[in-house]
């Protein structure tokens, strides 16, 4: 892992934290697991989501990985708005798992 990969993991955390804050989550938990060739970021917290919102998050996070997001556009995920956040994240990560039970949203991303 190089410093740029560290920066990417940090950006993912920052972007997801902003999402949970905008959703008025009372407590957001973040777990970052650095591994030799990847990072896993898990962000969870209680938020209110409609079935459509949840479906949109799942669909967007499971978008095909885009090479351009690997190097060029990755910084855009921290540029302030959350409207296309999950599209950008989905195009950037290798694996995504979303769990929503009893109001607790858990997003696990592997980059």
């Amino acid at each position: 892992m190089n410093s740029r990969e560290d920066q990417k993991a940090s950006n993912i955390v920052r972007a997801l934290s902003l999402y949970f804050l905008r959703k008025k989550c009372p407590q957001t938990n973040v777990i970052i697991t650095p591994c030799p060739l990847s990072y896993t970021v898990v962000v969870s917290g209680k938020v209110c989501l409609s079935p459509n919102e949840l479906e949109e998050i799942i669909n967007n996070l499971n978008r095909p990985k885009t090479p351009e997001l690997e190097y060029y556009y990755d910084d855009l995920i921290v540029s302030g708005t959350i409207d296309n956040l999950f599209v950008l994240l989905g195009s950037m990560v290798s694996d995504a798992n979303v769990d929503y039970q009893d109001g607790l949203l858990r997003i696990e991303l592997t980059h």
Binding site: F20, L21, K24, Q27, N29, I31, C35, P36
Partner: peptide
């Protein structure tokens, strides 16, 4: 109150 806790797990070893 809004709270964010961050945990970094080291699995390198």
């Amino acid at each position: 109150m809004v709270e964010i806790s961050i945990k970094i797990v080291d699995c390198l070893h």
